[in-house]
Structures are given as structure tokens and as C-alpha cells.
């Protein structure tokens, strides 16, 4: 799941400064559960834009905007509305906006920002997070990740900032290193506190170049990345 949040309306209206006619696209996937671009938010956006003097030529929520084949088939019946628009406003994550921009030959604007999930993959109850650092350190830290449990992602031990077990930067959170200490103690592993951890290899933490644009990343299987926007055809 990808978490998105609507941009401030002022920012959206500024994108549309020179465009009178707008077509809105929403997403029934993650954007709907994020409360940023499902059918309800699309309807609200239509109303707000109309009040602001825009002409909404049409609006459509598609099941998954990360799938270009689905976008094309779902928007087939709306070609006239899209053609009548000066711009298309897409209410979903960055992937969805890029897919609509690749599928529809119109200026396409994002209505949302995509929020960094800090290692969370999906919405579930629990505090465990993975940083995807590609150099797992959990052996040294009793199975609690210092990169995500510590606000500063310190690997050499605690800073001096904790107060009564709470983090200096985010006082509502426990100090990650105190959690690690308590777990190490409980498991008879306190000697691991002396483990010297090498500086992180930041090449491994950045997404691999092939991950930035592969079929796996795009949930699709095109032989080559599409470079030219194609107009939706009936």
C-alpha cells in the first residue's frame, strides 16, 4: 500500500491557473484507503473546483491507477470529456500520476503528495519497521532495528538526548536504543552493545537503478519502458 495525502487546495488551483476545463481522475486502490483520491474525494474536488470557477468536464475513479492497461480501458468511454479538458488532475500517488501521464495525451497534474512510509509496508498494527538497508544489523541489536527504532538512525549506540526513556526528537516515542538495551539485557546479550558496526554503505540504501523503473516496480510487464504518451483511443 502506498500512502498519499491531498496537496493544499491553493497549490492545486495554482497549477490550474491557465486551465479552465479540468478532467479529474481518482483511484480506488491505495488513494481511496488513504482518503486522498477515492470516489468521495473526487466528488468533493469536483465541487471545490466548480466553486472556484472551473469547468469540470468529467470525473472518473479507476480501480488501480498504477496499471496503465486498466487506465486505458476504464477511460475509453470518457474520451470526449478528456478531449474537452485543458488538463487532467490525478488524485493518487506518484506512480498513478505517472501512469495517467503516460496513458493520456494531456497536461497531467498531481493532486496529492506521496508520503514516505519510513519502512512500513502496508497498514498494520505494530511498531516493527524495515529500513530496507540491504545490510541487516539485527544480529547486533537483539532484533530491534536501530535505523527505524532510533529517530536519528544511530548505529553506534544511543545519543544523550533521551528523557525518561523517551526520544528527544519525538517525545511520544520510546528511545530505540533503550528498547535495544532492555531486550539485550533480557536475552543475556548485553555484550553485543560493544559490537563496532561499520559505517553504513549508502549505495545499498538508495534504490538500485533497475528498481527505479522495472516491470516489477511498475506492476506491469512491458518489454520496454514507454517513452511517448499515447492518446486514449476508442
Amino acid at each position: 500500500m502506498i500512502l498519499s495525502e491531498q496537496k493544499p487546495f491553493d497549490e492545486i488551483i495554482a497549477y490550474l491557473e491557465k486551465d479552465k476545463n479540468v478532467f479529474i481522475v481518482g483511484c480506488n486502490g491505495c488513494a481511496e484507503s488513504s482518503g486522498s483520491g477515492g470516489p468521495k474525494q473526487v466528488a468533493e474536488m469536483k465541487e471545490k473546483l466548480t466553486k472556484a470557477g472551473k469547468n469540470v468536464t468529467g470525473a472518473k475513479s479507476v480501480d488501480f491507477l498504477c496499471n496503465k492497461a486498466l487506465i486505458k480501458s476504464e477511460l475509453k468511454g470518457r474520451i470526449d470529456q478528456i478531449k474537452a479538458a485543458d488538463a487532467v488532475l490525478v488524485m493518487t500517488c506518484g506512480i498513478g500520476v505517472q501512469c495517467v501521464a503516460a496513458a493520456v495525451n494531456k497536461p497531467v497534474y498531481p493532486a496529492c503528495n506521496t508520503v514516505n512510509l519510513g519502512g512500513s509496508r502496508g497498514e498494520w498494527e505494530g511498531i516493527e519497521r524495515c529500513y530496507e538497508c540491504d545490510q541487516c544489523l539485527l544480529y547486533h541489536t537483539a532484533g530491534i532495528c536501530p535505523l527505524t527504532a532510533c529517530t536519528k538512525s544511530l548505529v553506534s549506540g544511543a545519543c544523550g538526548g533521551a528523557s525518561n526513556g523517551k526520544c528527544e526528537v519525538s517525545p511520544d516515542r520510546d528511545c530505540g536504543w533503550e528498547l535495544i538495551y532492555n531486550r539485550l539485557k533480557e536475552r543475556g546479550l548485553l555484550h553485543r552493545l560493544n559490537d563496532m558496526i561499520k559505517p553504513l554503505d549508502h549505495r545499498k540504501i538508495a534504490p538500485r537503478p533497475e528498481m527505479m523503473s522495472t516491470p516489477r516496480y511498475g506492476l506491469e510487464n512491458p518489454p520496454k519502458a514507454e517513452t511517448k504518451a499515447e492518446e486514449v483511443k476508442s
Partner: peptide
Amino acid sequence: AVVKVDSDTEASAELQIAKMQK
């Protein structure tokens, strides 16, 4: 290097000592 002397929890105090040795 620097170290914090006064800690309010056992974990914090021990972590400071361990890090100082590091």
C-alpha cells in the same frame, strides 16, 4: 568525545557508559 553523566534510566546510564567505551 563527549558523554552524558546524569541519566534518568538504567538503560540510558548503561548505554552512555557503553558508548563512552566505544
